[in-house]
Design a protein around this nucleic acid. Structure first.
Lengths: 216, 216
DNA sequence: TATATTGTGTATCGTTTACTACATAAATAG
DNA sequence: CTATTTATGTAGTAAACGATACACAATATA
């Protein structure tokens, strides 16, 4: 299972390196690569796509990022640092487990439909199926999905310890449910759902919270 | 939006055709192709995968199925006829909208984890992202997802007409929610969830049903 | 039997894939 | 300055991709 802690490599632009300086912004290139993988998937993104979008030649890309799978991994790390962990923080920092899950779902609704990047989530809807040659990449994203679920489970356990959730609750089932909600929201976003649509879905998902008093 | 009615081509084995007879069972080959696309995705399945698994050479495959995208389309049609429409029937034939959705979700839980085929659903988790060259294939599966949602919406409308759902209910939001549940269940199945896991998810999703009286 | 029609196996086709050899350019270090 | 180091652009590589040309085999029809 992947760690939720990711160390992001920040370009030390002040520290001068030895040889010829790089002619492009590495972090900016990484973000462009992320958006490509995000929109087209790992297998749907070719090196021609990457080099033409980043505006560099193949040798420069390989010198900076090693290989296509390595570039993908680093792109996903950037995604986690920029977007995903912000949502995870909403979960962890909330006063109760319920507020935490609600905040996370609402955060995801906004995030999955934000106009400055492709729709959905590259983890929740990433490399779900792939060729055997790319199995390691598929496992990477699956690990990140399992990690999300583990974070939810940990917050639910915390809720039980804090006394805001009954101890006899099936929190594994609940974590699986809300992880599935996130994944469903991502697919809906890819299929064109709006922020409001996803917020309604988050609302309905919170209606399933155990012991929830409902108005008809 | 794709029609939910699909005409499946049944091999007329009694009707003798003119030239040299085909040396393999076309429907059986189609099912093998479906399972390949199901497990590896459209872009992750190569023609080498197909010909070696079906046990035929490329010219035979092309004579029988025209092209890779045409084979994919026909495989999906077979999936719809064999699996998907059975679940859709549970939705349509139920006495109330609530029972219909509940049956559909439970049917999906069983179906997505059945041991005789790859996990998940090739529509709910199919070609979510792809290269621009395969955009038509992506649109095909997206159309089928939208169709599923439209079927849910139609059943909810029916429920309003039948009086088992309040007329002021936001049934569009509800249809989106349950469509998202199906898609989330498919991802969970791909990530290794059991039938029991998915049934718990279906149960929780039904807890969100409007006006649902809950026990803690 | 002769002809038409269709499927099969061999051996490719041209294109795209991810990736790199190599010479040169641009920086630092001594 | 020279030497070293790193990045860049040109022009490729071998392999895999989806798809076929072609000769031959196997059937139905005339």
């Amino acid at each position: 299972m992947a760690s939720s802690i990711n160390f992001v490599v920040i370009d030390m632009e002040n520290k001068k390196s030895r040889g010829r300086p790089r002619a492009f912004d590495r972090t900016q290139a990484l973000e462009l690569a992320l958006h490509l993988f995000w929109a087209k998937g790992y297998e749907g993104t070719s090196l021609n796509d990457l080099t033409s979008t980043l505006g560099i030649n193949a040798p420069s890309l390989y010198a900076a990022f090693e290989s296509k799978p390595a570039l993908y991994r680093e792109s996903i790390d950037l995604y986690l640092a920029q977007q995903y962990e912000r949502i995870g923080a909403l979960l962890a920092q909330a006063a109760t487990a319920r507020i935490g899950l609600d905040s996370m779902l609402r955060g995801a609704a906004e995030q999955f439909t934000a106009p400055d990047h492709p729709p959905g989530c590259p983890i929740a809807s990433g490399v779900l199926r792939c060729a055997e040659a790319n199995a390691a990449i598929g496992e990477l994203t699956a690990d990140h999905r399992r990690n999300t679920r583990a974070m939810m489970l940990a917050r639910l356990q915390q809720g039980q310890q804090d006394g805001d959730l009954p101890v006899d609750l099936d929190i594994h089932a609940l974590a699986g449910f809300y992880a599935g909600i996130i994944q469903g929201m991502s697919v809906q976003a890819i299929d064109g759902a709006s922020t409001a649509d996803l917020l309604k879905m988050a609302d309905l998902a919170m209606q399933a919270w155990p012991g929830n008093p409902q108005a008809s």
